[in-house]
């Protein structure tokens, strides 16, 4: 097996176990993995943004294709960095004004079209269909999202939830009934979202356990088993050190073990 694969298995296993230690309590191993996660993620984003923005969107079109119009966004971007110089910090407002202005302008027609009109159009559907050669029919099939019964349920759901979030009138009388119905729809949707999220997280958890089981194989030097032992030993040592510190009454500072036993802890340790 290549060395980098073996090393990768050990590193992945170690980091996975370090994160899992948080289930026991907050501890130095978890904090180490947590900070490493932030660092690696930021580093990865920097490299990707440099490659995408600076190289592909700026440097290559300007140098290879002579597209000098890109100096404009470059200049606007540089204005953002004016925030670091108090005397010219106001220049960064120009950059923000451009981004916010363009964003708002682009948003208005697109949101109205895609998220308001389209959603309303899909909600207000015929409540009965015309059968071939016959009169109007009403389809009851709940498993078909396009059935007339589901169209009715959908309409009631959308209208009642909108009523619930409509605070310009007092929720009394028929409005109260509509708002209460909206709450019931909301609760079902929140429950469904919760169940869906739980299962997604479970899927990730199964994925991590699958990796841990695979890396417990002798081909990987039983990485999971050895690192599990090391992690447990570290947690025990860390717990003992924490108990020592607590008995010394020093929770914020971290003096060395020798200092504790010789000076600050003298006379305060339980017999």
């Amino acid at each position: 097996m290549p060395f980098e694969t073996l090393l990768g298995a050990w590193v992945a296993t170690g980091l996975t176990l370090f994160i899992f230690t948080f289930l026991y309590q907050d501890n130095p191993l978890f904090k180490l993995a947590e900070h490493l996660y932030v660092g690696v993620s930021v580093g990865y984003t920097i490299v990707k943004v440099y490659d995408t923005v600076i190289v592909r969107l700026l440097y290559e079109p300007m140098v290879n294709q002579g597209d000098w119009s890109l100096l404009v966004p470059l200049g606007i971007g540089m204005l953002m960095l004016a925030r670091y110089f108090p005397k010219i910090a106001w220049l960064s407002r120009i950059a923000f004004a451009f981004i916010v202005g363009v964003g708002s302008g682009l948003a208005i027609p697109r949101i109205i079209s895609s998220y308001i009109l389209k959603q309303v159009e899909d909600t207000v559907r015929p409540l009965a269909s015309l059968a071939s050669g016959g009169g109007p029919t009403f389809t009851y099939n709940l498993l078909d999202p396009a059935s007339n019964l589901n169209a009715l349920v959908l309409l009631i759901g959308v209208v009642s939830v909108l009523f619930y979030f409509f605070f310009s009138i007092e929720h009394t009388g028929p409005v109260r009934v509509a708002a209460r119905t909206g709450i019931l729809f909301l609760m079902i949707a929140f429950g469904a979202a919760f169940g869906y999220t739980v299962m997604a997280r479970m899927s990730l958890l199964i994925g991590r356990f699958t990796d841990l089981i695979e890396f417990a194989d002798p081909r990987y030097g039983r990485a999971t088993l050895w690192l599990l032992l090391a992690t447990v030993a570290t947690l025990i040592a860390s717990g003992a050190r924490r108990r020592d510190l607590r008995s010394c009454g020093t929770s914020s500072s971290l003096p060395s073990r020798s200092t504790m036993s010789s000076t600050s802890c003298s006379g305060t340790r339980p017999a």
């Binding site: 109205i112 998220y115 309303v120 909600t123 589901n150 759901g157 959308v158 729809f185 949707a189």
Partner: peptide, 19 residues
């Protein structure tokens, strides 16, 4: 059914409000 109809109705109403 819950995801395609009930959940969709709530999502749609919330989306209209947010929009």
């Amino acid at each position: 059914w819950i995801l395609n109809v009930l959940n969709a109705a709530v999502r749609r109403a919330i989306l209209i409000g947010i929009s």
